[in-house]
Nucleic acid binder design. Structure first.
Lengths: 225, 225
DNA sequence: CGCTAACTTGATTAAAATCAATGCAGGTGG
DNA sequence: CCACCTGCATTGATTTTAATCAAGTTAGCG
């Protein structure tokens, strides 16, 4: 308790899955190196071409990660909430960012630079193992996302996304982002999202409660197409 | 030289990027734990639902990694040649495979089990860092692949794939897989691949030399669509 | 309260999947 | 070594899917 009162950085680091369950000594060492930065809605944590040398952990707020394709279209790659992190690519090989990280509302972020983290990784193998586990998850998820976009029709992609959003004991999915971003994430257009939701509602599979809330009436039927 | 003659396993491990540039002592320890397995064309290194507890490093031959979607279609996720590896997901969190790993010709593979590797990771942080770097690459590549599939038309996807295949000082791309698999990898059908290649050839941008070889006449124009 | 961006709806066009038929090549066994 | 067989590849016709273009409509925010 007394710790918390004079060290609010600690609370930031401790909510990150990567750093959970480490020994107290290690936690303190990490906390000492991490610092917090605030971003207002619309500000960028990083942009393409900037040098990439920090791990960013979302503490409060939301961050959307997107790229611009050659043809100028934007594609949402990931969407981060509290506890999620980004910038990890850069920690292990020097490179430039190739995407935008934009705060979608006022957001606070824990920052740990490459130079700060590397000694810790060398000293405490347990941290590396944690990060490896997290990477595995991310990689698997990314490959699954690729598969889905490559093989399923928009309606199925949308249905899968909605069902994944469901929380335990609830049939209401709350969209974490705008429908515009959702369209981009699913590799389609806002128009098509709008129409597909309409069609699903007509068939009684969902009900659109509000702009961001959708009740799932029949998850099984939904996933079958 | 004398090493090689009595320890062919060493040559297997040493060709993997992950394990390069480690100190001799560590290399020897890894080599001691790895063992080699042979697979004939069409045999599976692993299949979905099997427990996932080994790292597989391709030594000779080729392996295609693919999944079956709910709707029964197969999607090629990755294609491995010598030095590439798979199974890494499983090393850091227990789980079941969700994809097929099939040898596309007679193939030899180095195997290191989770139980064998974990102590090494704990003992030598440098190995974890290597693996982390490799994961970063893979993750970035996977996210880029998603972006491309989600935002670009088939013709552009195909063009990008071909151009990436080009070696230094050559304008001939050699396909590492069948066109059927290529179609699957790019999220389209063999028919469409066939037509797009025809169209690109008509426009003088490429020339189809043989089934597996394609000369790129104008890479810049190709990528513009 | 008004402005802007997000969203919706409709009409049209474009892209690619599907269906169907045939051609081709590489590997196998006689 | 040749002929066959099987899976791969091509080509054409058609249908399906979703993008694009064009107007509105709504909603949230200053």
């Amino acid at each position: 308790m007394s710790k918390h009162s004079h060290d609010h950085v600690h609370s930031c680091v401790s909510l990150v899955p990567i750093f959970n369950h480490l020994e107290k000594e290690q936690m303190d060492e990490i906390s000492a190196t991490a610092h917090t930065r605030q971003f207002k809605k619309g500000e960028f944590i990083y942009q393409p071409q900037e040098e990439s040398n920090s791990l960013y952990i979302v503490h409060k707020g939301f961050v959307r990660i997107y790229r611009l394709t050659e043809s100028g279209k934007e594609q949402l790659v990931r969407f981060l909430g509290p506890g999620d992190f980004t910038g990890e690519m850069a920690l292990f090989r020097s490179s430039l960012h190739d995407s935008f990280a934009e705060a979608t509302r006022d957001t606070s972020v824990c920052v740990i630079t490459k130079d700060e983290l590397q000694p810790l990784l060398a000293a405490y193998p347990a941290i590396s193992l944690k990060i490896l586990a997290e990477f595995s998850n991310r990689l698997e998820q990314s490959e699954r996302q690729t598969t889905i976009v490559a093989t399923e029709k928009v309606e199925i992609r949308l249905a899968m996304f909605l069902v994944e959003l469901l929380e335990e004991d609830s049939n209401v999915a709350t969209l974490p982002m705008s429908k515009k971003d959702l369209a981009s994430f699913l590799g389609t257009t806002p128009e098509t999202i709008s129409r597909k939701l309409g069609s699903l509602e007509d068939r009684g599979l969902i009900r659109q409660i509000s702009n961001r809330e959708i009740a799932i009436m029949d998850a099984d039927e939904l996933l079958l197409g």
